[in-house]
Design a protein around this nucleic acid. Structure first.
Length: 269
DNA sequence: GACAACCTGACC
DNA sequence: GGTCAGGTTGTC
């Protein structure tokens, strides 16, 4: 589920709510959610939460013992800070008991994962090192060069985390609509001006979504368990057959790069 | 670049 | 019963 705005919302929530808290105990409920080996509790218990960060759609939780807990939520993952008295939900796979509450990892489909790495080895974690520049931080010129330097279907390129980190299916469709670009257009065929417009549209979309604390279609909730509201502002995603906000013609849905894609064939070229 | 795989649940 | 889902990875 979560794309950059959802993951960033969770990180901001948790940064406020769990920074500085001490880890009292750990509960490995489902061992298969760990990407590598299941870590020994001694590498976690007794440490404090030092700070949190985001790399693409990965959440990084830095512990005071110089280890880093990495969390990827994939499609249906949730990472929430709750009171121990809050009812335990189905599909909760991992709990960190902190002084003052519990950090819970819940994931219906179990596509998400957890990973614990030693701080000095963080730079060598393959799936982090290969990530492209962050979609919120990449500058206009770098973005334009990236887009025009690849001969790929633009939607697939935007979804490629190794090219640009953070974009997902919703925000790619929304940004392409705002920029008036057809999702199947070949990236290298875009003019500097149109690539620049796409950069602008991408930032606008992501920042609006952040202000609304993300989009909740089904599962997503922030770090405090509350849903986002940006789904109410979607212009094309999930609106197949409904009128295009610009021209009124019906929004179409096709498959691009194996993903459901929503667009207006009149407004996007 | 297309497609299957990983899983559960919602909806038709 | 079949289809689809916010993501990524591995195989033709």
């Amino acid at each position: 589920m979560p794309e950059l705005p959802e993951v960033e919302t969770i990180v901001r929530d948790l940064r406020e709510d769990i920074s500085g808290r001490k880890i009292l105990s750990v509960n490995f409920i489902t061992r298969s959610v760990w990407r590598g080996r299941v870590p020994s509790a001694k590498f976690i218990v007794g440490a404090a939460i030092e700070r949190l960060d985001r790399m693409g759609k990965n959440i990084l939780i830095f512990l005071s013992n110089d280890r880093v807990l990495i969390v990827h939520l994939k499609m249906t993952g949730r990472l929430t800070f709750e009171q121990p008295s809050s009812p335990k939900k189905k599909h909760t796979h991992f709990i960190l008991s902190l002084d003052g509450g519990e950090l819970r990892f819940n994931d219906i489909r179990r596509f998400g994962y957890l990973d614990l790495v030693a701080g000095p080895k963080l730079a060598k974690v393959r799936y982090l090192a290969r990530l492209g520049p962050d979609a919120l931080k990449i500058g206009r010129q770098e973005f334009t060069e990236l887009i025009r330097g690849h001969k790929r279907i633009i939607k697939a390129l935007l979804l490629d985390q190794d090219a640009i980190a953070g974009m997902g299916n919703i925000y790619t469709d929304e940004a392409l609509f705002r920029a008036g670009i057809h999702p199947k257009r070949v990236s290298s065929s875009l003019s500097v001006a149109r690539a620049g417009k796409l950069h602008e549209a991408m930032l606008e979309t992501l920042n609006l979504a952040l202000s609304a604390r993300g989009s909740t279609i089904d599962n997503y909730v922030g770090g405090r368990g509350t849903p986002g509201s940006f789904q109410d502002q979607h212009l094309v995603y999930g609106r197949e057959g409904k009128p295009c906000p610009k021209c009124g013609r019906a929004i179409k849905r096709i498959i691009v790069g194996g993903r459901s894609t929503h667009f207006c064939s009149h407004c996007q070229k």
